[in-house]
Amino acid sequence: MMPLAFARPGSLVRVIAIRGGQGVHAKLRSLGIMEGRLLRVVNLMYGGPVIVEIVNDVGPSPKVALGFGISTKIFVEEV
């Protein structure tokens, strides 16, 4: 398990846990990022923001940019 901020660009990861306050949780959830979800790390700047694709099995998968602060609160596991 590692923070999303340190994931490998191009890798597919699964969200294991989200730390942080209710506000962070709510914000991420309404975007569809929550425990159990698959994310593809599209692009990442070390110490900076990360772009992830929220993987959908049907239909297109939307992309979201997350700042460094928030992406250190999302714990993921490479699959």
Binding site: K27, L31, G69, I70
Partner: peptide, 12 residues
């Protein structure tokens, strides 16, 4: 106070 963080959709 710290920021609530950067979250931005990247539309196609």
């Amino acid at each position: 106070g710290s920021s609530t963080g950067f979250v931005m959709e990247m539309p196609p």
